[in-house]
C-alpha cells in the first residue's frame, strides 16, 4: 500500500521540529512510525510534510531523578520493557511496554509516539493513568506539563496543543507506583488489547490505603476507574473485597463494541482483568 505523497525533513533540533509543526497542522511528527505509517498507508492520515525527530538522541534516555522517573519521548517500547529503573519503580509501565505488538514493533515504536497518537486500543494509557504520570510538552512559547488525568481527551485526541511536542514522561517515585502492574487481554492477531488494566496500589496493615486504576482498550479513550478505586479504598484486601470492587469496572462508561468483541463481553472481561490486576499487587 502506498501512502499519499509527502515531503520529508529530518530535523536536528527540537526547535526546528516545533517551528515546522507550526507552519501547518497538515505537518506530522515522525518518530518510530509504528502508529503513523500504518495510518498513512490506509490514507487515514495524509500529512503534507513528515518531520522526522528520530535523530534527537537527547530524548532517548530513562533515568531516576529521585522524585520521578524521567522517560524521554523517543525511548522505544523495547527500552521501556527492559529498563531496570522502570521495572523497579513503575512495573505497570514495563508490563505494558512488553506486551505491545511484537518484538519487531517494540524495536521501533516509541512511548512518545504512542502517547501522542493516543489510539483507543493502545496499551500505555491504562498504565500511565494508574501511575499518575505527567507529560512534559514543549511548544514555541515554552514548556508545560499535563497530568495523565487531563491528557486523554477523546478518540485519538489528547491535550497536546497544535505545534506542541511531547518530550518526556515523568512517573512519580513512590511505594504505590513500585507496587503496580498492567494486565491485558490481547486480540490474538493484532495484539491490541480488548481490555488492558493498569493498577497501582498501596496498603497498610492489610487494608488498601490508596489505589489508582486505568483502563486501555475498553472505551473510546483511556479512563481512570473511580468506581473500582472508591469501592476498595479503606477496605481490607481479600478475595471478596477485590471481587466486589472489580464488579464496578467500567460502570457508567461507554464501552466499545466491534465484530470481535461485543460491549457485553468487553464489560465482563474488564471485571475479570481488573480482578486479576488488583490481585497481583495485593
Amino acid at each position: 500500500m502506498y501512502p499519499a505523497e509527502f515531503d520529508y525533513v529530518k530535523v536536528s533540533s527540537l526547535e526546528e521540529a516545533i517551528s515546522l509543526k507550526q507552519q501547518g497542522d497538515e505537518n506530522s511528527i515522525l518518530a518510530g512510525g509504528h502508529s503513523l505509517i500504518p495510518a498513512m498507508k490506509l490514507r487515514l492520515s495524509t500529512p503534507k510534510k513528515l518531520i522526522d525527530i528520530s535523530g534527537l538522541n537527547q530524548y532517548k534516555n530513562i533515568s531516576n531523578n529521585g522524585s520521578h522517573i524521567s522517560i524521554g519521548a523517543l525511548c522505544t517500547h523495547k527500552q521501556c520493557a527492559e529498563s531496570d529503573v522502570i521495572q523497579q519503580n513503575c512495573p505497570a509501565l514495563s508490563d505494558a511496554a512488553s506486551v505491545i505488538g511484537d518484538p519487531h514493533v517494540r524495536n521501533k515504536g516509541t512511548i512518545g509516539g504512542a502517547l501522542a497518537h493516543s489510539d483507543p486500543q493502545a496499551d500505555y494509557p491504562g498504565a500511565i493513568l494508574a501511575l499518575n504520570a505527567t507529560m512534559v510538552v514543549k511548544g514555541s512559547s515554552g514548556g508545560r506539563t499535563i497530568a495523565a488525568d487531563d491528557y486523554f481527551t477523546g478518540l485519538w485526541e489528547t491535550a497536546l496543543g497544535e505545534g506542541e511536542l511531547l518530550t518526556e514522561i515523568r512517573i512519580p517515585v513512590n511505594p504505590m507506583n513500585a507496587n503496580s502492574c498492567y494486565v491485558k487481554f490481547p486480540q490474538p492477531a493484532s495484539r491490541y488489547p480488548y481490555v488492558g488494566c493498569g493498577v497501582a496500589l498501596s496498603s497498610s496493615g492489610g487494608n488498601c490505603s490508596d489505589i489508582r486504576v486505568g483502563f486501555s482498550g475498553v472505551g473510546e479513550w483511556a479512563f481512570r476507574d473511580a468506581g473500582i478505586e472508591n469501592a476498595l479504598k479503606g477496605q481490607a484486601l481479600n478475595s471478596s473485597s477485590i471481587a466486589a470492587a472489580a464488579e464496578k469496572a467500567a460502570e457508567g462508561k461507554a464501552v466499545l463494541s466491534d465484530h470481535f468483541v461485543s460491549e457485553e463481553y468487553r464489560r465482563a472481561m474488564s471485571k475479570v482483568f481488573a480482578k486479576r490486576a488488583i490481585t497481583k499487587v495485593s
Binding site: Y8, K10, L30, G33, H34, I37, P38, D52, S54, P103, H104, V105, N107, K108
Partner: peptide, 12 residues
C-alpha cells in the same frame, strides 16, 4: 535489530 520493512520508509 529486527524491523518490519513494510512499516518504515526507505528514507528513514
Amino acid at each position: 535489530e529486527a524491523v518490519k520493512a513494510c512499516t518504515m520508509f526507505a528514507i528513514q
